[in-house]
């Protein structure tokens, strides 16, 4: 950090007195980063497997089966989004929404999961989806090999916990992610699991110094768990429109608080 002039000096004093200067990153992070890559590798292998089955159902014209596989398949993608997003071309190809295209669903370039979701739920059909499915599977496989070749940047790993919460807070809590299928709660599950995994991996590094912080974070995760479990159905969740306004409010505050708290995780571990 750099400060200038008089106000800089004042800010510096303030920062020092509140203990805002974090430690330097050290090699204790090697274990969590390695374990996180192993976690991501497992998730992306599952994603390839699930996407293979999902796209096969789409190509076979089996709308019911494709619908049933849609949300569970996305789960592992949502859990590893902070890493998947590092490849912006693939992220757009796999997970972009109609809003990212000027004329929305009508745009022939609209690809990936949400293009198929649109077909399955809005048109109740797999017409014209075969090439989209082929491309999705190819993109997911490409993601798998790119992740295998990637040395994970530690700040992206640690920062990923906050990124996941930011995603939910900014563009998911409204239900606009899975707007045709309303399977948003599945996505949330993936996002929360992914964020929590990161927190759990770095937990030993900050357990002593940041006990209070971890307690707050854990409490918020527990709150989210509590709400999600209320809406469980079978192996998954009911549609997002079933969420009560009160629960949505609790979820929103928990997500925002988590985003706020987890945004300090990088700094706490010396990764600015």
């Amino acid at each position: 950090m750099r400060f200038h002039g008089l106000c800089g000096a004042a800010a510096l004093t303030l920062a020092l007195s509140s203990g805002a200067f974090a430690q330097q990153a050290n090699l204790d992070l090697v274990e969590p980063v390695a374990e996180y890559k192993l976690y991501v590798s497992e998730q992306v292998s599952k994603l390839v497997m699930d996407t293979t089955a999902f796209t096969a159902a789409v190509k076979a014209g089996d709308v019911a089966k494709a619908k049933a596989l849609f949300a569970p398949t996305r789960l592992s993608y949502e859990a590893i989004e902070p890493i998947a997003e590092l490849f912006s071309d693939l992220d757009a190809a796999i997970d972009s929404r109609a809003d990212d295209y000027e004329n929305g669903e009508a745009n022939p370039e609209f690809p990936g999961f949400h293009r198929i979701e649109y077909g399955l739920w809005e048109k109740n059909s797999t017409d014209g989806l075969a090439p989209v499915a082929d491309k999705l599977l190819a993109d997911v496989k490409e993601l798998d090999s790119r992740i295998a070749a990637l040395t994970f940047p530690p700040e992206k790993v640690v920062g990923g916990a906050a990124v996941l919460m930011e995603e939910v807070a900014a563009t998911k809590i409204s239900g606009e992610e899975d707007r045709y299928s309303h399977t948003d709660l599945w996505d949330f599950r993936g996002n929360f699991d992914g964020a929590r995994k990161i927190v759990d991996l770095v937990r030993p590094l900050i357990a002593k110094k940041e006990a209070k912080f971890l307690k707050t974070v854990d409490a918020n995760f527990a709150q989210v768990d509590g709400i999600l479990s209320k809406y469980k159905k079978g192996d998954g969740y009911v549609t997002y429109d079933k969420l009560t306004e009160a629960d949505r409010k609790v979820l929103a505050t928990a997500v925002n608080t988590l985003a706020e708290d987890l945004s300090t995780l990088r700094g706490k571990l010396g990764l600015d």
């Binding site: 950090m1 930011e166 807070a169 900014a170 925002n256 985003a259 706020e260 945004s263 600015d272």
Partner: peptide, 15 residues
């Protein structure tokens, strides 16, 4: 601008 997210980004990274 995603201002909430920006406000939660490390100062050094913002710069």
């Amino acid at each position: 601008n995603f201002v909430e997210r920006w406000d939660r980004t490390p100062f050094g990274e913002q710069e």
